[in-house]
Write a protein that binds this DNA or RNA. Structure first.
Lengths: 188, 188
DNA sequence: TGCGGACTATGACGACTGTCATAGTCGCCC
DNA sequence: GGGCGACTATGACAGTCGTCATAGTCCGCA
């Protein structure tokens, strides 16, 4: 249960939703779980999110997508593409280990939330597109033609998301590490 | 609603579970959905699956994993690794288009089914491992050292699974196609 | 001091879930 | 034919879900 210090109840609910979606998925996370985890008042769910669970899932996915985009941009500004991919792999490996392989990517969870919450799925699509574009621009700056840079960025994003999935199922970060090694070989 | 002709009710339930898991995920699929979709009698769920939903999810995941492994083996026997990857990408692209991007990989759905059904998640891990191993052996037969073949197989499986995720969120097979192109460049 | 709007506590509603018990029906084997 | 086990129909159970209505409490501003 997170404290609400320094955050509005709305932000606390969003952060808790992100954490719970990462672990259990959207469908398996109830609004009661979110308010209990965040310590936010139950009575004000529909005050902050008039659209109910669908709006909460959409906003949480957008927030998670933006946070990850910021990390990608930061890592990209302080290293070449090879180092950046390495740093991203390290980040997710830490997330997996710290969460005992019960936590993954919240945006992926929203992407698979079926047609229950289409807005959340769309927000996931936007997030993936943003990440790909940031990577593609960095690769193009590195001298790669634009169409090849786009393909390569798509491979990087998809490979990492897929490796998170496989690593969770296998309960070891070995697949993620293997994908990291092979991606580095591909980039050089 | 599938007919049960030629299949036992148990098999019909498994096939329907696979289809529904692919579209909605494990958590969002109810046992009533499965029997309604399969036309199987509701009264005998716990006759065929004494372990309830957990056992159904586990067996369905295993069945889906075996079916896909068979497709991988077949495609691998009739083409070199490059052609095999191409064929697998084509297969999934067809699945996405025919399902209007509402269907994905059932094994991935089981992998993200949280700790609700650990046996299904483990079955997903086994399936991923089987696919990787089949690919790695083919790559090794092609002359690649064993450790590099293993890494490359992990990249292929993860990239395709991730591309399915991204393509569903974006509602276009463009990411899957881009990943296919870039994988082919990597393999040659 | 008092008013008004932002926020919250509490509890209810109908629908849905997994699970199971009971009472059957059907078909094979002696 | 008779019995026995495999299979199914029906309905109930306790619990949880998203959603909302009602009745507040709190706080800034006039």
């Amino acid at each position: 249960m997170s404290t609400t210090s320094g955050r509005s109840p709305r932000e606390a609910m969003l952060d808790s939703a992100i954490a719970l979606f990462s672990a259990r998925g959207v469908a398996a996370t109830s609004l009661r779980d979110v308010v209990a985890h965040s310590g936010a008042p139950r009575g004000s769910i529909y005050h902050h999110f008039p659209g109910g669970k669908a709006e909460l899932a959409e906003d949480a996915t957008r927030r998670a997508g933006d946070l990850m985009a910021r990390l990608v941009a930061q890592v990209m500004g302080s290293a070449d593409p090879v180092g950046a991919v390495d740093a991203i792999i390290d980040h997710w490996s830490r997330v997996l280990l710290e969460g005992d392989f019960d936590t993954g990517c919240p945006v992926a969870a929203a992407a698979l939330s079926s047609d229950e919450t289409p807005a959340a799925r769309d927000a996931a699509g936007v997030a993936f597109g943003t990440w790909e574009q940031a990577l593609a621009e960095a690769l193009a700056d590195d001298g790669l033609p634009h169409d090849r840079a786009a393909d390569r960025a798509a491979l990087i994003v998809s490979a990492i998301e897929g490796a998170l999935l496989v690593s969770r199922a296998r309960r070891t970060d070995a697949p993620l590490r293997a994908v990291g090694r092979e991606l580095l070989r591909h980039l050089t």
